[in-house]
Design a binder for these strands. Structure first.
Length: 396
RNA sequence: GCUGGAGUUGAGCAAUUGGUUGGCUCGGCAGACUGUAAAUCUGCUCCCGUGAGGGCGUGUAGGUUCGAGUCCUAUCUCCAGCA
């Protein structure tokens, strides 16, 4: 499901093949936590160059419920996004939600809507993701952010134990699906029973209807733990890998070089949650990651912070009210092609939702385009020059 | 003209029986946000000072009191009702 077209050090240009189409990598995956990208329609995601979206298991479990997504025909049909889809496992909520309890068995969250307790084991996460039916699933991991080696080691070891359980459950579900398929359609597609949630192309096969599982490497910013976790995951038959528990650019390159030097080259690597800063993308690409996701571009857009080639711009600043230039003169997004800073500043001050829409289109386009440009620069051998020019201007 | 009510910050409201008087919301000025509990959150927002700090303040002018946004007198303005 992954083809590498070109390598440059750890970096690579490739193509992830999913039942819902291909992702040309490096690629920025658009966050769609609750089966929508906040403030955007699918048409807008397409227009700004988004290739794939990432939804969240915990959030869709609570609303609308995994059964409903399954009955709708899976995430892709439910949200009418015909491109590739990812789901995050809920592991991030272990860290982000208050009141979460973790044991070796699994995690106990609170339901953010009514305060109920929500238990989720690695097996639960696999089943729920199976119901949601994205193309690429993430293993349920124990996410943490600590500067203490012992704490991160404990999270890593728990993640490893969970990884094996995730894999086993994922394989059991696949096998069961194949059995149903054989019964319903003897001699046909071995994963026919998945067809409701997968598509449609004439060349549908076991390969293309397969739902992939990525294991998630842990270990924080500790070299020895990353080595151990990467080695552990490399030995297991995951379809690809997520790299988790990274939060800042400092030390990220070391984490990635350590991890990606050990992970098998022929499988895709997704850097989870990184991409707020342009430098994160450059480090990620150079460090050998293929896909990225981050909520920051859309969140910052809603809160009024916009990317430009010359750094961040706060559209709420008073100077914007009479600035009739586009947000970024060199941006090709709908917002910059049609509107001025002054207009956006007006919409934000008037609290009009269109302001947030236009800002989100811009920020998401900015980071998607940046990632696409790293791909092009790798292909024509100008990555280093592109990186230097971009970063020196952005961070001045 | 009479009766009653009200005048506090850019706006709308607060401030126990007079008791450390600048509190809240909005607006304004900035900042933050990295696998989304986030169209959210944080700081500042009377004057002077970079700062420590200092100064003034509840329509106006007086008064009572140790102490007044709160009480008294006069006066101005606004609102309501009555002539």
């Amino acid at each position: 499901m992954f083809e590498i077209e070109k390598r440059a050090g750890l970096a690579r240009v490739g193509k992830i093949i999913t039942p819902h189409g291909e992702i040309e990598t490096p690629a920025f995956v658009v966050a769609a936590t609750k089966a929508t990208t906040k403030a955007l329609t699918n048409a807008e995601i397409r227009d700004l160059g988004g290739q794939a979206v990432l939804a969240n298991t915990y959030h869709l479990l609570l609303r609308p419920g995994a059964e409903i997504v399954e009955q709708a025909g899976g995430l892709s049909k439910f949200m009418a996004w015909d491109g590739p889809t990812f789901t995050d496992s809920g592991g991030f909520q272990v860290m982000s939600l208050p009141g979460t309890k973790v044991t070796d068995e699994g995690a106990e969250f609170i339901n953010i809507y009514n305060g109920d307790k929500v238990k989720m084991t690695p097996e639960d996460s696999m089943r729920i993701q199976w119901q949601i039916g994205a193309d690429i699933h993430m293993a349920f991991d124990h996410v943490a952010d600590s500067s203490e080696h012992a704490a991160m080691k404990a999270c890593m070891e728990r993640t490893h134990a969970w990884a094996e359980r995730c894999l086993e459950e994922h394989q059991r579900l696949t096998t069961r699906c194949a059995a149903i398929s054989r019964r319903q359609q003897p001699g046909g597609d071995p994963l026919f029973a998945l067809k409701g949630k997968t598509p449609h192309t004439p060349q549908d096969s076991a390969l293309t209807s397969y739902q992939a599982l990525f294991g998630v490497v842990q270990g924080g910013y500790f070299k020895d733990l990353r080595e151990e976790s990467a080695g552990f995951h490399a030995s297991l038959p995951f379809d690809g890998f997520g790299i988790g528990s990274t939060y800042r650019a400092e030390g990220l390159m070391e984490v990635l070089t350590t991890t990606n030097s050990i992970l098998p080259e022929e499988k895709p690597r997704h850097l989870l949650g990184m991409g707020q800063e342009p430098r994160d993308i450059f480090i990620g690409v150079e460090g050998g990651c293929d896909t990225f996701d981050c909520v920051a571009p859309t969140r910052m857009a809603r809160n009024g912070t916009l990317y430009t080639h010359d750094g961040r711009l706060n559209i709420n600043n008073s100077a914007m009210t009479r600035d009739f230039r586009p947000v970024d003169a060199e941006c090709d997004c709908y917002t910059c092609q049609n509107h001025t800073r002054a207009y956006l500043a007006h919409l934000f001050r008037a609290d009009e939702i269109t302001g947030k829409v236009l800002a989100t289109i811009h920020n998401e386009r900015f980071v998607v385009r940046l990632t696409d440009q790293t791909r092009e620069s790798l292909l024509d051998g100008t990555f280093d020059e592109f990186k230097k020019a971009f970063l020196s201007r952005y961070y001045k």
